[in-house]
């Protein structure tokens, strides 16, 4: 078991064995800047990648007004994923593009579903202070926000 599991990563992902820091990431390299382990293990300061400029609501993530129609949501989503999906992002930008894509996709998932959107809209209006309610429903952000003081999602509420 040991011998063959050591062969597999070697043949597919030589980078991991070739000095991770020296090689630039390529399309097949899969490490990311903000893996959950890194989030947990590093201090809060280093985990906030774009605290100031981060969009705060799902509408802002997609760059649309709150009254946007379903078609506008869809086309805004498509426009964004064509830039940020790792398959199309620039080679040296793969790692952050996955996170970017997940953000956009989460926003899209909520806003493109009429029920989830109505629910989300209610929460925005009703609860301007606590992010707790819907931070759980966000699948893309690791819920380590207990250790990280701020992130793109909680920002809107502080």
């Amino acid at each position: 078991m040991l011998s063959s599991s050591s062969i597999r990563p070697f043949s597919q992902f030589p980078h991991r064995f070739a000095g991770e820091s020296s090689l630039p990431p390529t399309s097949t390299v899969t490490f990311r800047q903000s893996r959950p382990s890194a989030v947990v293990c590093s201090s809060a300061a280093t985990t906030i990648s774009k605290p100031a400029s981060a969009p705060s609501s799902f509408y802002e993530v997609l760059g649309i007004p709150m009254g946007a129609t379903n078609n506008e949501i869809k086309s805004a989503y498509r426009k964004l994923v064509r830039v940020c999906h790792p398959d199309v992002a620039a080679i040296d930008d793969k790692s952050s593009s996955a996170d970017e894509f997940m953000k956009v996709h989460t926003a899209y998932c909520t806003l493109s579903d009429p029920e989830k959107r109505a629910d989300y809209d209610r929460r925005i209006f009703r609860n301007n202070r606590g992010s707790r309610l819907y931070s759980m429903s966000s699948p893309t952000m690791p819920r380590y926000s207990g250790y990280v003081s701020r992130n793109w999602e909680t920002d809107q509420c502080w």
């Binding site: 078991m1 011998s3 063959s4 062969i7 070697f10 043949s11 030589p14 980078h15 064995f17 070739a18 090689l23 630039p24 990431p25 390529t26 399309s27 097949t28 390299v29 080679i91």
Partner: peptide
């Protein structure tokens, strides 16, 4: 484990990113 047959396994350099970008 059973020895795999003599088909060669891709080496590091053949799949490296540098080759791809250049």
């Amino acid at each position: 484990m059973a020895a795999e047959p003599a088909y060669f396994v891709a080496s590091d350099s053949e799949t490296s990113g540098e080759e791809k970008s250049s």
